[in-house]
């Protein structure tokens, strides 16, 4: 796995009070730290997507709860934490013809990290690496792979 990608853990969330607490509780119990988090909501169910410091452990502890879990490779891009930061990145994505399915962002001291689900990470990553390596976030510090 490239230094410039993150493993995202997704979990099916049924439409019932208290389900998020089950997920968060399982992670807490196993000492997994959540770095970024988003819920995609559809009629009657949701998908929780998380970036954690230990994806393998997170997956194990969620599956032990009987939850449906899947993992995805995500691209992590560094943005300037200032006006125009996202604009700079999105222009590059357009220029490099990189299609994204969804994205969300989180902050690290002094910078913002954009987490991208792209249609084909195997072609997208080399393109950014070749033309704009300075935008790629070094991810090894976040997670034990």
């Amino acid at each position: 796995m490239s230094l410039h990608e993150l493993r995202q853990i997704s979990v099916l969330l049924e439409n019932k009070a208290g389900r998020l607490a089950v997920i968060a509780g399982a992670l807490q119990e196993n000492g997994v730290n959540i770095l970024a988090f988003t819920i995609a909501e559809a009629e009657g169910f949701g998908v929780v997507r998380i970036i954690v410091d230990d994806p393998a452990k997170a997956r194990r502890s969620l599956e032990a709860q009987g939850l449906a879990v899947t993992e995805n490779r995500m691209m992590a891009l560094r943005m300037l934490d200032e006006p125009g930061g996202l604009y700079g990145i999105s222009r590059i994505l357009g220029e490099q013809d990189i299609n994204m399915e969804y994205a969300y962002a989180f902050n690290r001291p002094g910078k913002a990290i954009l987490i991208l689900k792209v249609t084909d990470i195997n072609t997208a990553l080399p393109r950014i690496e070749a033309s704009y390596p300075e935008f790629l976030e070094e991810c090894s510090g976040y997670q034990h792979c």
Partner: peptide, 9 residues
């Protein structure tokens, strides 16, 4: 199970 809402729909 997929992370993509479209797949699930």
């Amino acid at each position: 199970f997929s992370d993509r809402i479209n797949d699930l729909m």
